[in-house]
């Protein structure tokens, strides 16, 4: 009985969340901002798989985001102007990059892991910076088209929003499935105590590598969608500041919650956009907010919701 009542409630909330996300572009200052929030929500969610669930502080996730964006962009500009193959290529290449970086860096943990991932990401950044012929270098990869998919005219911002929303909802569903599976539980176990997990008989490195690749996959998808949204790929998408941004979004939102990073992306991008219209010192205000988050409520926005609204049982 209780179960069926709960699932009923769950269905109601889920469908209203979907409804709200459908209306979202009409509530933000402009449509493209809503799309940007979605892209970073997806990126932050994929990052949370690594940081929040597996406890690996990667500081090189811009690499997978940027590689996804560049691959999708290069496919569209130079190879074949069709969206789906380009996005597919983006996620494949970024997953392969995650396999490469992950394979070499998961042997280390803690600060060493962080530094190795940062070093790899900067390596990709400088490759793109120097390889002007392929990536456009400092000018970014300009003129990424948005070809239509059948009747879907992606040049319209609002259509593109729903196109991105489709992928984001799909990814969140898969993400939820992953973290609630035995695989996800194992990840959380090794986050809490690596040695004990190992002693039970789990191949810890394999789990860490797999979650790293899954995260790279979704980061690449976010990057590909970002290239479509912007009509170009900025070089900064590979830069360490992008990695920093996604760390901040995840922490402010609440790591290890999957929904928290989505809220973190929403809050940070929206606030930055609004505050920067009023004052040049927006960076200062964002910094204060971040410090407040780290000092005051470590669990992020999600923890406030839980505590203040007494939603947690």
């Amino acid at each position: 009985m209780i179960d069926s009542a709960m699932s009923k409630k769950k269905i109601i909330t889920l469908s209203s969340a979907v409804l709200l996300s459908l209306l979202f572009p009409y509530l933000t200052p402009y449509t493209a901002l809503a799309s940007e929030i979605l892209v970073f929500a997806l990126f932050a969610m994929s990052y949370d798989l690594v940081l929040g669930y597996a406890g690996m502080l990667s500081f090189g996730h811009a690499a997978f985001f940027g590689i996804g964006a560049y691959t999708t962009g290069i496919m569209l500009v130079r190879v074949y102007p069709s969206v789906m193959p380009a996005l597919l290529a983006g996620v494949i290449v970024s997953s392969l990059a995650a396999l490469f970086v992950g394979y070499l860096s998961i042997r280390r943990s803690g600060i060493y892991f962080t530094m190795v991932t940062l070093a790899f990401a900067q390596m990709f950044y400088f490759t793109a910076f120097k390889w002007t012929g392929l990536t456009g270098g400092d000018d970014g990869l300009q003129g990424v088209p948005r070809p239509s998919i059948g009747p879907l005219d992606l040049t319209s911002e609002i259509t593109l929003y729903y196109f991105i929303l489709f992928f984001v909802l799909l990814s969140i569903t898969i993400g939820l499935r992953v973290v609630n599976s035995p695989f996800g539980k194992t990840l959380q176990a090794l986050r809490e105590n690596k040695d004990r997990t190992m002693s039970i008989g789990y191949d810890v490195d394999k789990f860490r590598l797999i979650v790293f690749i899954i995260s790279g996959f979704f980061s690449g998808l976010a990057g590909g969608l970002y290239a479509l949204l912007l009509n170009f790929v900025p070089l900064s998408s590979l830069y360490w500041t992008t990695s920093g941004e996604v760390v901040v979004m995840t922490i402010v939102g609440g790591m290890g919650t999957l929904f928290g990073p989505v809220l973190g992306a929403l809050g940070i991008i929206l606030l930055r956009d609004i505050i920067s219209n009023f004052t040049e010192s927006w960076n200062f205000i964002m910094g204060l907010i971040f410090m407040g988050c780290v000092l005051g409520f470590r669990g992020g926005i999600m923890s406030i919701i839980r505590d203040k609204l007494k939603l947690n049982v």
Binding site: T13, L20, F24, L263, L266, G267, I301
Partner: peptide
């Protein structure tokens, strides 16, 4: 139950932030 609460929390913040942004926009 926990999951349901999370989703509800998401909704509340979503609504609040969106409302504020809608007010600010001229």
């Amino acid at each position: 139950m926990k999951k349901y609460n999370k989703i509800f929390g998401v909704l509340v913040v979503f609504l609040m932030v969106s409302g504020i942004s809608a007010l600010i926009v001229s």
